[in-house]
């Protein structure tokens, strides 16, 4: 019983998160300006992190947790660097 519930719920959650990835990708491609693309990239990172956590539950391994943590860290660093770049046009002053 619980196998059926969890399998269906995980599949459904993965589909929803996959759809969220596609919608964020659409905004990433459409723009219209650079800041819109960076914002879309940030939510792309977040959705990918949640997708990894869902994979972790479906596989029962804690390995995916580390991957999710690394994605979260990268998301912060890259978005901060890109925002800095938009501000001045160069990352290192």
């Amino acid at each position: 019983m619980s196998t059926i519930i969890l399998t269906v719920a995980i599949l459904f959650a993965e589909l929803l998160l996959g759809a969220a990835l596609c919608v964020a990708c659409w905004r990433l491609l459409k723009g219209p300006r650079a800041q819109d693309r960076v914002l879309a990239l940030d939510s792309l990172y977040l959705t990918a992190m949640l997708l990894f956590l869902t994979f972790g539950i479906s596989s029962g391994q804690t390995l995916y947790f580390e991957a999710a943590l690394v994605i979260g860290l990268l998301s912060f660093v890259s978005t901060a660097a890109l925002a800095k770049f938009l501000m001045r046009g160069e990352v290192i002053e």
Binding site: L6, F12, T54
Partner: peptide
């Protein structure tokens, strides 16, 4: 996994994924 835990985990997962999808829909 006990059934109550499976129901709770499944519900939390789907709600969380749906809210994230709503956020990206707002973004679009």
């Amino acid at each position: 996994v006990p059934v109550w835990a499976a129901l709770l985990v499944g519900a939390c997962l789907v709600i969380g994924a749906a809210i994230t999808l709503a956020g990206t829909i707002g973004l679009a």
